[in-house]
Design a protein around this nucleic acid. Structure first.
Length: 143
DNA sequence: AGCCATGCACCG
DNA sequence: CGGTGCATGGCT
């Protein structure tokens, strides 16, 4: 069983909006969260290093999976999951708005990322149960 | 809910 | 001193 999540990239995701870091927002839907490692919600802003291999080049990257949750502690307004530290990666693969990032993982294997260019995204194949969520996210379970 | 933005710290 | 990342708030 392989699980994959796809995210259509926004301008902020690829780092072209003037923000100080490229990175993407991860929705709190269970289907997406369960794909990523568990973070301890009883501590403030838990984070985890995510080792990811690019599918084509086999290059190794490290992203951060963080749960900004200061709201739960009455110290702020945040209650969201984010993937950060992706600036160099986005540049290296020349990610553009509307390109799609695919994260996949099988059983206990390490994470993989693949980019699908906007120009070819119409050829996206669906070979399992797919679940389309908001924010440009799609979850795929396939065997 | 999702995307955009920024003050400050740190590091080359 | 310019770029990057952390943690946070803002805008729609």
């Amino acid at each position: 069983m392989t699980t994959a999540v796809r995210k259509k990239l926004s301008a902020n995701d690829v780092g072209t909006t003037g923000g100080h870091q490229a990175g993407i927002l991860v929705p709190k839907e269970k289907q997406v969260l369960s794909f990523f490692p568990d973070l301890d919600k009883t501590v403030k802003n838990p984070r985890m290093k995510l080792v990811v291999f690019e599918r084509e080049s086999r290059e190794r990257w490290e992203f951060n999976f963080i749960y900004y949750n200061n709201r739960l502690f009455g110290e702020g307004t945040r209650n969201e999951y984010r993937l950060t530290g992706m600036t160099k990666f986005m540049r290296a693969i020349d990610a553009k708005v509307d390109d799609i990032l695919v994260f996949s993982r099988d059983e206990n294997a390490s994470f993989e990322v693949e980019i699908i260019r906007a120009s070819t995204s119409s050829s996206l194949q669906i070979d399992g149960d797919t679940l389309v969520l908001g924010g440009g996210w799609t979850v795929i379970h396939s065997s």
